[in-house]
């Protein structure tokens, strides 16, 4: 029996080795190094100069860093307050009883997710282009009807400079197209898992649609909703590809579109200071972990109270 156990342990290690070796080299080691790097200044890789806590001191007084945080939070709040309610509403509509073709609708709304972010960015960059873009052409066409003509901005829709003057609005609009259907999938899955007997019991008690929504449905999908909020915040705070490609690798006019990860990328790979980039990375990590922590505590409290 002991020899059997020893054999089993040996095989366990054989199966674990590829994963663990890569995990230690490409995950644990860089994580440790990121702490050291944050206390150094580099000029390209392999050239460290120890600077202690200077990177963080600089960071706190760096107006560009604060601007990137502000921009990122505006985007994150945009997705939280606009995208998620839309996704939930859409899930409710799709969850209607006796609705046919639910699977097809679900697939259609999800379909933008099939495009990777870079490819969406290319499509977005062209769609929001001044004269040739789909958006301005469609708005121009729609406002040619007298009923909608009052919506036309002073220079006409064709000249409306989305990417030059309304970067954040553009980013949020593209992200609506991209993520509403994606988040809808989670909400819909949660809605379909709601215990039907609870709803029936509420109906027997004479609850109307509104009461059912607020007292039965919402409480029972709360864990999934919390998860979706967390996932969407984590994703939003790490926004990179969309503004990077849309704005040709820089922050756009007056750095309106500079996000935290974009600033990290610029510092580390355009200016070559991997130390400063690591400091930005840690600032972001602390924000993300703090966010996750708050959410987990909220979830615990809800579980305790229910």
């Amino acid at each position: 029996m002991t020899s059997n156990n020893a054999k089993r342990t040996r095989v366990a290690w054989v199966l674990l080795t590829p994963f663990l070796a890569l995990f230690v080299v490409f995950m644990v080691y860089p994580l440790v190094q990121s702490a050291f790097l944050a206390a150094n200044q580099t000029f390209g890789p392999g050239t460290r100069t120890f600077v202690g806590e200077r990177n963080f001191a600089l960071l706190i007084e760096d107006p560009l860093f604060w601007k990137s945080i502000r921009n990122t939070i505006v985007y994150a709040l945009g997705s939280l307050l606009i995208q998620l309610p839309m996704a939930f509403g859409l899930a409710l509509a799709l969850n209607s009883r006796h609705l046919r073709g639910r699977a097809l609708y679900r697939l259609l709304f999800f379909s933008p997710q099939l495009m990777g972010l870079v490819f969406v960015s290319i499509l977005g960059a062209l769609a929001f282009e001044k004269r040739a873009g789909l958006i301005n052409q469609a708005l121009h066409w729609a406002s040619s009807y007298s009923l909608l003509s009052w919506t036309t901005p002073s220079g006409g829709w064709l000249e409306y400079a989305w990417l030059q003057e309304h970067v954040m609005a553009t980013l949020i609009l593209i992200s609506l197209w991209l993520y509403v259907g994606f988040n809808m999938i989670y909400f819909l899955a949660a809605l379909q898992n709601v215990d039907q007997s609870l709803i029936e019991a509420a109906e027997i008690d004479g609850a109307n649609a509104r009461a059912k929504l607020f007292h039965v449905v919402l409480p029972s999908i709360r864990p999934v909703a919390t998860f979706v909020v967390l996932l969407s915040m984590i994703g939003s705070l790490q926004l990179f590809e969309l503004p990077y490609v849309l704005l040709d690798g820089n922050g756009g006019p007056n750095n309106q579109g500079l996000t935290i990860v974009m600033y990290l990328y610029q510092s580390g790979f355009e200016l070559g200071d991997l130390g400063y980039a690591s400091a930005i990375g840690w600032a972001l990590a602390i924000m993300l972990i703090g966010l996750a922590f708050i959410q987990i505590r909220m979830m615990r409290r809800e579980e305790a109270s229910s």
């Binding site: 080691y29 190094q33 392999g46 790490q238 580390g268």
Partner: peptide, 22 residues
């Protein structure tokens, strides 16, 4: 392994680049 799920991938961008260089 499970606690590594919390590590934001963006934190590893700079140190991974240096590692790959070495």
């Amino acid at each position: 392994v499970l606690s590594a799920l919390v590590i934001p991938p963006t934190l590893l961008i700079a140190p991974s680049y240096e590692l790959l260089y070495r």
